[in-house]
Nucleic acid binder design. Structure first.
Lengths: 153, 153
DNA sequence: CAATGATAGTAAACGATGTTTACTTTCTAT
DNA sequence: ATAGAAAGTAAACATCGTTTACTATCATTG
């Protein structure tokens, strides 16, 4: 039945694009959270990671962040409140529009964001070493074409 | 500050591998769940998707499924109980070991799994059409090399 | 062979998280 | 000027995962 039980070697043809993308994406996600935790940002939990994603929350409005994270504005607001209590960010009034607010990193928030980027670049170095510079660039280029395409809408 | 606010065009160099993998992976995840729901499997919710992943739960033991999904055996057991109530699977005693159990799809479970695979193949067709057969194969090949490597451990 | 420890599975209490419903404030349009 | 829409927020509610705890079975070892 299953590939694993038959003990047959798994080939590229057997794997569908869903698992091929999901497994490394989740590995990176866990790695970043783990490294953030061990770097001193111990309070950060999986839900918080919804904000520590490209291009980060700094300078954006809660509603935009909710949309980007694919959750309701209320849920995002609770996340923002949590991170505000932990000292990672503040919500201040937007200068231009009365009802709008703007999310800003605090010093600690900036430090965590910088650490996340640092881990990401470390991961890129590891992948480049494993695949070779040429193939790694090729992989990113192909993924970028997917990113630009209507496939991910 | 942010790339989006500057209105500068985003280039491959700007994107890190985390987002390049995560965004399409999540798009595929949402697509599969949506298509399953509209295909008549309306009770399936995001948590259930932990079981509708390669290579599927059929024939495996609860503990193995928990490990694969990265959650506790208790949480997995609740998921299994939920899907058992919904008529997607059954947990029967393993023939060889007294304390072990085996998860088996029901007819409805097999149908849902087949539908998920069908959507996946449909997605692959779309990606192949968008990127071209050559580049799509190249993308899968590169991702498969990542899959085999210690990068995702 | 009996007893102890380990493992697979399960169950219930608990805590955290996301959605739904509802409300306030501000902006927009007619 | 008023009505409707939009941004943000708050609380009730349901869902989901972990922690704690228990049973049954297997393995180890005296």
């Amino acid at each position: 039945m299953s590939l694993f039980k038959e003990n047959s070697p798994i080939k590229t043809k057997d794997m569908l694009i869903g698992a091929l993308l999901r497994v490394p994406a989740e590995a990176i996600h866990r790695r970043i959270l783990r490294d953030l935790n061990t770097a001193g940002f111990t309070e950060l939990s999986p839900p918080h990671m919804a904000l520590f994603r490209f291009p980060g929350p700094d300078g954006f409005r809660p509603g935009v962040l909710a949309e980007r994270a694919g959750m309701s504005k209320q849920a995002m607001n609770r996340l923002l409140g949590s991170l505000e209590n932990l000292g990672y960010l503040v919500r201040s009034d937007a200068p231009d529009e009365g009802r709008a607010r703007i999310v800003r990193f605090t010093k600690r928030g900036h430090a965590a964001w910088a650490k996340a980027l640092e881990v990401l670049r470390e991961i890129e170095r590891e992948w480049r070493a494993e695949l070779g510079p040429k193939d790694f660039s090729q992989l990113k280029e192909l993924l970028f074409r997917v990113w630009e395409s209507p496939l991910v809408r």
